[in-house]
């Protein structure tokens, strides 16, 4: 167990599940959540995407969302006693990769403690009443780029994707380890395809990714998505 996890576990043992409200503003938190929404959904109809949906996260041990393939690190953190509450969520949001070393979550973190308080207050709304998950603000759901249905419906050939993936793994680690360059392993195909088309179409800005995506055909993007969605880490 990492030192931090031990300290988190210790804190929990001392306080029980007192999910103390740190006084965040849920409305502002909805704005903060936009940073998370490229990978996570909350609210009615939320489903797993690049990251797990976050409904009902309060009081849950880490890595408990069904049918989401977590990193080994996150699974172990859950087994070691990491439970999500105001404190642990805030710490994780501050620096995910330091808090759970080996997480696939590629996010630099939110430095401002007020922003984190607001974010956690926002997330709390989707945990209070499992029978009645509120709708999320429209700005905080959905993909950031629109791709034609006929492109999304292409069935990718994972074997071809494996060949093509050599161009990706010079930078993106197949294991999902991420430090400065995001993990692209085990993404839902739709998210993968949407992200690459967003670079290809110039909607997402990154010179390397725009260049790499610009010469991938629709079939090749689908093939890569199929391969990375099922990659054996």
């Amino acid at each position: 167990m990492s030192k931090l996890l031990m300290s988190i576990a210790f804190t929990l043992a001392g306080t029980g599940f007192a999910l103390a409200d740190a006084g965040g503003d849920a409305e502002k938190g909805a704005q903060v959540f936009r940073k998370c929404a490229s990978c996570h959904m909350v609210g009615e109809d939320a489903r797993n995407r690049v990251g797990p949906h976050l409904n009902g996260i309060f009081g849950q041990p880490a890595a408990m969302v069904e049918s989401f393939r977590y990193s080994n690190a996150m699974t172990e953190a859950g087994e070691d006693g990491l439970v999500w509450d105001y404190d642990t969520l805030s710490r994780f949001a501050e620096n995910p990769r330091d808090t759970v070393k080996g997480t696939r979550m590629s996010f630099r973190g939110i430095a401002d403690p007020d922003d984190r308080n607001d974010l956690v207050a926002y997330l709390r709304q989707f945990s209070d009443n499992p029978a009645d998950i509120p709708e999320a603000a429209p700005t905080t759901t959905g993909l950031d780029h629109s791709v034609a249905p006929e492109i999304l419906s292409i069935v990718g050939d994972a074997a071809y994707g494996e060949y093509l993936s050599g161009e990706c793994t010079s930078c993106h680690q197949a294991s999902g380890q991420a430090n400065g360059i995001p993990s692209i392993s085990l993404w839902p195909e739709q998210d993968f395809v949407t992200a690459l088309h967003a670079y290809k179409d110039g909607a997402r800005e990154h010179p390397v990714m725009q260049m790499m995506a610009s010469r991938l055909s629709n079939e090749e993007i689908a093939a890569l998505a199929a391969y990375f969605a099922t990659i054996d880490q």
Partner: peptide, 14 residues
């Protein structure tokens, strides 16, 4: 710069 650090880890693993 941070991307270059990530690339170092990526190419080393590759």
């Amino acid at each position: 710069y941070e991307e270059s650090v990530g690339w170092y880890d990526g190419i080393s693993a590759d």
